[in-house]
């Protein structure tokens, strides 16, 4: 099983230092939180989509189109019932929907879509090992990053084993299709036990192999990947910081882009 959103292209985004990309995505997340007016967030989403185009990775978004549409629709439908606004459009047994709450729902739908898109942007342009490496350089202790990298390496192996386990139980007559939640969980039990045991039989081997290769949790070590920070990285981080500052100014000082005040 191959699980990755990485889209191997040679664009300037792909070449950025992974630290820049992780930091950049975090900045975009915060920028999204500056406004709750749909028009403003739509603008941010449009910019993220433009960066996607620059990364030649729109097809990655297309792969997840159903998820994105679902996220959007869900938010738009749900939020109006939980937020109170001034201009009441509909009132029914204590539930009310207002113009402001509708707009807020729309904004949150767009924000959710932007979050996921920005996350995907990172995943589409950065390899797993670059993300891990970036995290180490951002100060995450090596043993933690090691656990993350090893888990990423093992997850497809265990997913394959899981698929085999499903087949093994189905061929013994286990019926996995169940409509209700409880039934679904219950049928998972004959699957979870072999998944657990067959994975745990690895653990001691892994730890033995690890020490045999000279691994010490707290010893210093060198790193094979040494991403270079270039002027372009600073340019990207600098402009994103400026954008964030500008957005904060608009929200805090100018009170722009607000539908419901008192909420992010």
């Amino acid at each position: 099983m191959n699980l990755t959103f990485y889209n191997d292209r040679a664009t300037w985004l792909h070449r950025l230092d992974p630290r820049t990309k992780i930091g950049g995505v975090l900045l975009i997340f915060v920028v999204c939180l500056c406004f709750n007016h749909p028009l403003f967030i739509a603008g941010i989403l449009a910019s993220v989509l433009a960066i996607f185009t620059a990364a030649k990775s729109l097809k990655v978004l297309w792969k997840l189109r159903f998820l994105l549409v679902l996220l959007f629709v869900f938010s738009v439908v749900l939020w109006p019932f939980f937020i109170k606004g001034k201009t009441i459009l509909l009132e029914w047994h204590g539930l009310e929907v207002s113009r402001e709450s509708l707009l807020y729902g729309l904004a949150m739908g767009l924000r959710l879509t932007t979050f996921v898109s920005a996350g995907l942007l990172l995943l589409a342009t950065t390899k797993n090992e670059e993300i891990t490496n970036g995290l180490i350089r951002l100060g995450i202790p090596y043993p933690v990053a090691f656990a993350l990298a090893t888990a990423i390496r093992l997850a497809p192996t265990f997913a394959d084993a899981g698929a085999t386990i499903v087949q093994a139980q189905v061929s013994r007559g286990l019926d996995l299709d169940s409509k209700n939640i409880f039934g679904r969980f219950k049928r998972f039990a004959p699957l979870s036990i072999p998944i657990f045991i067959s994975a745990m039989r690895y653990t001691n081997f892994l730890a033995m192999a690890l020490e045999s290769k000279g691994f010490r949790p707290d010893a210093p070590r060198t790193s094979y990947y040494e991403p270079q920070t270039t002027g372009r990285d600073w340019l990207v981080l600098g402009s994103l910081t400026l954008i964030l500052a500008a957005c904060l100014y608009m929200r805090v000082a100018l009170h722009w882009g607000i539908i419901i005040s008192g909420r992010l």
Binding site: P143, F146, A147, L148, T150, A151, I152, R153, L154, A155, P156, T157, F158, A159, G162, I195, F196, A199, M200, Y202, T203, N204, L206, A207, L210, E211, F215, P217
Partner: peptide, 16 residues
């Protein structure tokens, strides 16, 4: 070391 590996294995099972 063994706890670190256990962490990775648990994470991988859960993620998978």
């Amino acid at each position: 070391t063994r706890m670190i590996v256990l962490t990775a294995v648990c994470a991988a099972i859960y993620a998978a």
